[in-house]
Design a protein around this nucleic acid. Structure first.
Lengths: 246, 246
DNA sequence: AAAGTTTTTTAATCTCTGTTCAAATTGAAA
DNA sequence: TTTCAATTTGAACAGAGATTAAAAAACTTT
């Protein structure tokens, strides 16, 4: 069950004999971990074209020129593969969060960095569409691990919004719902995005982020409508301090 | 293939003998259409709790206390059921669009009505989570029919944004991406929404819509950043006139 | 080259679910 | 009560796709 890949650490020049787009595996032994990476990357490629619901073990194997049985030498089962992809994707986003926090600018700047990085993380490696899977299909501890990371990201977003509010840069009635809005909109992108479509991932990242930030920016003077009960500071303040400490 | 339910129009008081939550079908003949409706509604109930990917014909049947075989008396196949749910859901949203257009207010008001109605349409009947299915699984003409409606909705949103821009009420760099953002955020709601959760569908509808509109509202005076190339009028103007004529 | 380990293949199996169908049941009409 | 159509059942069928396992092949080491 809990099986660590125990990567045999040794590097050898691999000829990697290619024919067409088929990678020949026979020639390069060792380095199980690298192959796992390659397999995961390949899943991203497949997902860029086909649809998640129709993604089959056979598809993945074909893409790599290996047999489906062979995949089970590298992964426990299909769920495991999908789970790893999920994690890869999330880790990219968390890296964007770290990058954002490391940058010393205003909350709006940090948030911009985070969101742009997040969008790129989702679109550029093809893993984005995997977000559509429901977490129910994961093993409990996989789910737990993933949710922990996902929550880190969500809290990161909320903290930044909250920070902006406290600094008077932002104005937001409900931080949690604003966060959900932003992240939901981003998670949905893979549903309509196509690499060869009219929008580059760069353009999407920039312009959608612009829009998200506009909705937070404080308008000096006029309050557009009577402010509702302030439910904002209930779910963000503690995390705000936590995140700023990172 | 193209089979019209040919509803035998006759109404009779149906005892509808209920036991626990099991609806007894035997006692109420006729009105095939009504039962189809009931089945679809039941799918919504199931989806409120279980997950779409694990939704099985058996689940639907169980919920209604009928056998799975019996479902095939009312629907061609599973895809057909799912398709009908899709349509139901979309029709609710399109009704919101009509309602919005009928209301004679400013674009921002219309958009508010539309979005609030759209969110309610998605959340209140439990069909929302069905949006996660990919359209590939539909039969071509089903897909075509659905996409036509979906596009109507998308164009409706864009037209309203565009209208607001033209009237000086809104300010938007890229109408299409703003529309995608809004609709994506809404489509994603079923992923985290739970009827017994902390947010009512009312609250979600109101506050998320607030946020979406904030991001469009024009700020008098300062341009926050140098405006990019205006790609807005490419995808909205014609539809704008079309929609306003409705 | 022989032995041992890692990787790959091949084919069979297993399971889950959608689907079909003939028979049974029900309700309405005659 | 008989007849007929509408509805329901229950069991069998079918197909797809994940998973397994034993044998084969490839590669490393000695």
């Amino acid at each position: 069950m809990a099986r660590n890949p125990a990567s045999s650490a040794r590097i050898k020049s691999s000829p990697a004999a290619r024919k067409k787009k088929v990678v020949r595996w026979n020639g390069a032994p060792g380095l199980k971990g690298q192959r796992q990476e390659a397999i995961l990357r390949s899943v991203g490629s497949v997902l860029r074209n086909s649809r998640l619901s129709s993604l089959t073990i056979q598809d993945i194997a074909s893409e790599l020129g290996m047999t489906k049985g062979n995949l089970y030498y590298y992964f426990k089962d299909k769920q495991d593969i999908l789970y790893q992809c999920h994690m890869r994707c999330m880790e990219l986003s968390l890296r964007a969060l770290q990058e954002a926090m490391a940058n010393g600018g205003l909350p709006s700047e940090k948030l911009r960095i985070l969101l742009i990085g997040h969008i790129h993380g989702i679109l550029d490696d093809g893993f984005g569409s995997i977000l559509q899977t429901d977490l129910e299909s994961f093993w409990p501890d996989q789910r737990k691990r993933y949710i922990r990371k996902r929550d880190d990201l969500e809290r990161g977003v909320r903290s930044l919004i909250e920070a902006g509010v406290l600094l008077g840069e932002f104005e937001c009635d409900n931080v949690k719902l604003a966060g959900f809005s932003i992240l939901g909109a981003i998670n949905w992108i893979p549903k309509w995005y196509h690499p060869n479509g009219p929008f580059s991932s760069d353009q999407i990242a920039e312009e959608m982020t612009d829009y998200f930030l506009r909705g937070l920016q404080r308008r000096d003077g006029v309050a557009r409508k009577a402010p509702r009960e302030r439910s904002s500071s209930k779910n963000g303040t503690d995390n705000y301090h936590r995140m700023l400490a990172t």
